[in-house]
Design a protein around this nucleic acid. Structure first.
Length: 820
RNA sequence: GCGGACGUGGCGGAAUUGGCAGACGCGCUAGACUUAGGAUCUAGUGGAUUACCUCCGUGGGGGUUCAAAUCCCCCCGUCCGCACCA
């Protein structure tokens, strides 16, 4: 034992012990459960301080809940498929697997060096054939349920990653991963029908009170549900142009129609018209723009007349059909009925091209201004038989009339698109489908899973899916007719892998996707912790896949994640730590200098978990100082405590200093417990413990110590620090004579009565301004306080010659005298 | 434009059930100990004025209240997400 805080020795000692005894192994039992899950990492290489922060939060919660009597599952593994491995493989002429597994080994050792409570027996990587076999199985189940389809459409293409991407993975027209500008290609791709679940994904958000409002808002926004009407305008003979609108009530105000240049009817609508040339030039111009330009609100609204007309289904009026650069081809029908009198965008467009306005909705009280679009509520005019109806009612009535005439119907539209899951890359789970000359597209048989990634591939050809270079892989046998077939060479989006991993942790299994019985015990995840960057991507995909598994009778809960914490980022120089920016503070370096406990402590103390945190060299020094301070305190008191048994000390017979220390102790336990359990404010829990340490230091200066009370204070302090600085706490627990493991102890209790001070300082106010402060007994009543207040010399002086109007006394807080 | 979060010392941040603004930590200042200190300990640290008293102060303005960082209204600003979605 050393008087110096030797973190290297201490941390290695306890880590070796935890490893050897499998201290963090978890099995389902009769205790109440708690499933604490940190989003598993991509094995990118090395941990930095950002990682430490993420995982330290989950680790504190895990250790705390164990001390609260819960059986806590806290697993860790690897989201191990993905592009960086493949790119590294091309660059270093290795195999992606080698790069990935090396990184996993390195990072696993780093996790252990940080003392995290993971049950390593449950570890897996999504690139293990034992795992991706079930990702493929899941694909087949979705196929069976009609939730998978293959379709040619305009898709996002990342030229740098040489693969297609889902809508969610395109940010501001750029690749979410590499930042390259996205282009568009017409390709046949695989999709998951997430839109079938749009309503449930949306409605269930209301059943997730433990999720941040922000994340729920983002998902609602992304799903973008909108109720409206499809209205059919007649073009040619017996052919219709369908428009989606949320304002069917303004149908009598339609003065033209605008189509996206990509609309399928455009070619026929312009053909042979004098405007044809003009239109072609316009379409070419619009299509030449990239996504960002095209969708920018700054973009000037432009259009051209097609030379054709469409017939309004109710008025029979012929209105001109235009092409517009602002109409989104992929939303609704790609065709908009324009009502310039009641839509400001149409108003601007109509003004520019001298198209007519027709007001049909009039405000009930105010005058209608004809200098702008009126978008508010009102009553219908100029609308035939619908005149006089409130516009909200007219929306329904007009749609019902259209339904009677088979010229329209109610429609719910979503912004959400189906999930494009195929990728033209090697390092992912192969899509288990085949192309047979006779049978067409056929699924692989379940018993033939996993469809293994071949080893004989060539990574050298840039822009080609390496899987295509393996003849052994591509050439296959049709599972139906036994004839010659070709394997699908696309792999699945890695977000498919991570959409069900939490179930695998909860119920590891050799012969099933997961063990249903064990998963029933653990699910759902009580606390999920991860970055807000997954607010839409992973968190919506996972909810969707879990919902499908729930419908299949497999997943025990409809929603997988009960409570969600989106922790803030660790910044350096105001920017998120990232390899590409080169602003990384490496875990290894800091652990070597200060030890794991100090790193953890700093990350938790400096800011509340949800907020971003700026790295500070001085800040980590402060945390290191605090641990040293605790170390010295316990080390110096240890000789007189070693033989003192732990007891709970009563208030009776204690001296003033003892009573103060006791009060501080109980108050600290109460606050540290509430902060972590209710508020999730680890920073304030820690500041409370710092105050307790300061109080014990102060008491230590006393001549004769109440050893029983000191023992209780020191023991409680070590217990409360155990989740945060587990190595130091273990060592100090042992040092002070305990034969037990600090992490298997019960969290300390507190007595609410003892947490109150004997005397409290109250303030005396006159007209709300503080004029005096006094110490009064804790139990002083309103009446007592008033008496005390009027006896104060200062108060008497100020009140001279004033009339007292009102006196407010709040026990334990203040007395306020209103006088004038 | 829509939605979410937020604005408190030199800095990170406390206090949000209305009731002492600035806990805790960093930094800074002075002192103690010391051969030395980038260790440790003690004291101080919102601003103005300063022996004391006092006044001002939570982005700005108004309001409710005995009492507002906290509740209400208006405005300004920052960050994040979505964005010509019909």
């Amino acid at each position: 034992m050393s008087d110096r805080y030797n973190f290297e020795f201490i941390e290695q000692k306890w880590q070796a012990k935890w490893d050897k005894t499998k201290a963090h192994k978890t099995i389902a039992n009769e205790k109440p459960k708690f499933y604490c899950l940190d989003m598993f990492p991509y094995p990118s290489g090395r941990l930095h301080m950002g990682h430490i922060r993420n995982y330290a939060i989950g680790d504190v919660l895990t250790r705390f809940q164990r001390m609260q009597g819960y059986n806590v599952l806290h697993p860790m593994g690897w989201d191990a498929f993905g592009l960086p491995a493949e790119n590294a493989a091309i660059k270093n002429k290795t195999h992606p697997a080698e790069w990935t597994f090396n990184n996993m080994d390195y990072m696993r050792a780093q996790f252990k060096r940080l003392g995290f409570t993971y049950d390593w027996d449950r570890e897996f990587a999504t690139c293990d054939p034992d795992y991706y076999k079930w990702t493929q199985w899941l694909f087949l189940k979705l196929w069976e349920r009609g939730l998978v389809y293959r379709k040619e459409q305009l898709v996002n293409w990342c030229p740098s990653c040489a693969t297609v991407l889902a809508n969610e993975q395109v940010v501001d027209g750029e690749c979410e991963r590499c930042g390259a500008k996205i282009t568009h290609k017409n390709l046949e791709q695989w999709f998951f029908k997430i839109t079938d679940y749009a309503d449930r994904l949306l409605n269930n958000l209301d059943k997730l009170p433990g999720w941040p409002e922000k994340v729920k808002a983002m998902q609602r926004n992304w799903i973008g549900r909108s109720e409206g009407t499809i209205i059919k305008f007649t073009v040619f003979k017996d052919e219709y142009l369908e428009c989606f609108t949320t304002r069917a009530d303004t149908l009598y105000g339609v003065t033209y129609i605008v189509l996206a240049p990509e609309h399928p009817l455009v070619a026929r609508l312009i053909k042979g018209n004098p405007e044809e040339e003009n239109c072609r030039a316009f379409i070419e111009e619009v299509l030449a723009q990239d996504e960002i330009e095209r969708l920018s609100t700054e973009m000037e609204k432009k259009g051209v007349f097609t030379g054709s007309f469409a017939k309004n289904p109710l008025t029979g009026e012929e209105v001109p059909i235009w092409l517009g650069n602002y109409v989104v081809a992929t939303y609704g029908t790609g065709a908009v009925m324009a009502v310039p009198a009641h839509d400001s965008r149409d108003y601007a467009f109509a003004g520019k091209y001298k198209l007519p306005l027709k007001y049909v909705v009039f405000p009930e009280k105010a005058e209608l201004s004809q200098n702008e679009a009126y978008e508010g509520e009102g009553v219908l005019k100029n609308s035939g038989t619908f005149n006089g109806l409130a516009n909200k009612i007219a929306q329904k009535e007009i749609t019902l009339e259209l339904e009677r005439r088979s010229l329209g119907h109610f429609q719910v539209n979503y912004r959400l698109r189906d999930w494009l899951i195929s990728r033209q890359r090697y390092w992912g789970a192969p899509i288990p489908m085949l192309y047979c000359d006779k049978c067409g597209i056929v699924p692989e048989k379940e018993e033939n899973l996993p469809v293994l990634l071949p080893v004989d591939v060539n990574f050298a050809k840039k822009g080609t899916n390496p899987l295509k270079t393996s003849q052994n892989f591509v050439t296959a046998v049709c599972p139906i007719c036994g004839g010659k077939a070709q394997r699908e060479t696309d792999t699945m989006d890695t977000f498919v892998d991570s959409s069900w991993y939490y179930l695998r942790y909860a119920g590891p299994s050799k012969d099933k996707i997961f063990d249903l019985e064990e998963a029933k015990y653990w699910m759902n995840v009580d606390q999920y912790i991860g970055g807000v960057e997954h607010a839409i991507l992973h968190l919506m995909y996972a909810r969707f896949i879990n919902m499908v598994l729930y419908d299949m009778g497999l997943s025990p809960k409809e929603e997988p994640f009960c409570n969600l914490l989106t922790q803030g980022m660790v910044l350096l120089g105001g920017a998120k730590m990232s390899k590409s920016k080169g602003n990384i503070v490496e875990s290894d370096e800091m652990v070597k200098t200060y030890g794991a406990d100090t790193c953890r402590l700093f990350m938790l103390f400096t800011a509340p978990p949800e907020r971003d945190l700026e790295w500070s060299d001085a800040g980590i020094e402060g945390s290191y100082r605090f641990i040293n301070r605790v170390w010295r305190l316990v080390y110096e008191l240890e000789p007189e405590l070693r033989e003192v048994p732990f007891t709970t000390v009563d208030r009776e017979g204690l001296g003033k200093e003892e009573r103060e220390l006791q009060q501080k102790l109980h108050e600290s336990v109460a606050k540290a417990t509430e902060d972590i359990k209710v508020k999730f404010q680890l920073n304030t829990a820690l500041s409370t413990m710092m105050e307790l340490v300061n109080a014990i230091y102060l008491y230590k200066e006393q001549k004769n110590h109440h050893q029983g009370l000191l023992r209780q204070a020191i023991d409680s302090l070590i217990l409360m620090l155990a989740p945060y600085i587990p190595h130091t706490a273990s060592e100090l627990w042992e040092l002070t004579g305990h034969a037990t493991d600090v992490h298997q102890q019960k969290w300390p209790d507190f007595d609410a009565n003892l947490a109150k001070a004997d005397e409290v300082e109250i303030v005396l106010q006159i007209n709300g301004k503080i004029r005096d402060r006094l110490l009064v007994p804790q139990e002083a009543t309103k009446e007592d306080l008033e008496e005390i207040a009027f006896n104060s010399e200062k108060i008497k002086e100020i009140l001279e010659g004033k009339v007292i109007r009102k006196v407010i006394a709040v026990p334990g807080k203040l007395v306020n005298i209103v006088a004038g």
